[in-house]
């Protein structure tokens, strides 16, 4: 099968309309034929979503800008390892998440933890259950401006462990099924499920605490 036929085949199997080339097709055109315009289209296509994702991962704009560039550059450098039968989007987001995590490590950024505080969210008394009906996040209520809400969302995310933050953001930004996430991350489905449940619960609890003006999150 020639490169052109492969691209065409990819377009047919993609849910997009035939007139709109799929992400995978654009990437293969760039990789195999050196079509820079195709890569430019692809960058443009992912520009907003990837930047939002990276901003939420890192919590700062400069870091998001840097990793955005690094992720696309790395996708190019690793083009040879891209499996034509897989989707481009999760591959790109996984690269970006990996780069973002590296940046966090490099910056030595760590969540603060006061050793004198009780260990365990409930002072070691056991599990606490979150009721999301008490988690008032949307629409923006009267107490919170959009800016305040945005800042608080970021604060709660920053307070989460990188592992949970990653799975939450990958799931939210990609809206994949458990099986798809497990497939893309290469981890067991049960692990994806339990991590996502934990991530939502921890986010919900952090959000509740912030909005109640509690100091214990």
């Amino acid at each position: 099968m020639t490169g052109a036929e492969r691209h065409s085949e990819n377009d047919r199997t993609h849910p997009r309309a035939a007139s709109v080339p799929s992400d995978e097709s654009l990437f293969l055109r760039f990789r195999d034929d050196g079509d820079t315009e195709a890569y430019r289209d692809l960058i443009d296509r992912y520009h907003d979503d990837l930047l939002r994702f990276l901003y939420r991962m890192l919590g700062d704009r400069q870091g998001a800008e840097d990793v955005f560039q690094e992720a696309f550059l790395q996708a190019h450098l690793s083009a040879g390892s891209f499996d034509e039968n897989r989707r481009f989007r999760p591959w790109l987001f996984t690269i970006a998440a990996n780069k973002a995590r590296d940046l966090l490590r490099k910056k030595g950024r760590r969540k603060t933890a006061e050793l004198s505080a009780p260990i365990g969210g409930d002072g070691g008394r056991g599990a606490s259950f979150v009721d999301l009906m008490e988690t008032d996040v949307a629409p923006p209520d009267e107490r919170l401006t959009a800016e305040e809400r945005d800042r608080q969302v970021q604060k709660v995310l920053n307070d989460m462990s990188p592992t949970l933050r990653e799975v939450l953001l990958l799931a939210y930004f990609q809206r994949l099924s458990y099986a798809q996430i497990a497939d893309e991350l290469g981890i067991p489905l049960g692990t994806v499920k339990s991590r996502l449940h934990s991530a939502v619960a921890v986010f919900g609890k952090g959000w509740q605490a912030l909005n109640r003006g509690e100091t214990d999150v």
């Binding site: 599990a127 979150v130 999301l132 462990s161 619960a201 609890k205």
Partner: peptide, 17 residues
């Protein structure tokens, strides 16, 4: 990490959620 993991593990979604 231990403190945070312990804290996160202690938080769970309610059954309906």
């Amino acid at each position: 990490a231990s403190i945070r993991d312990t804290r996160e593990q202690s938080v769970q979604l309610g059954a309906r959620d």
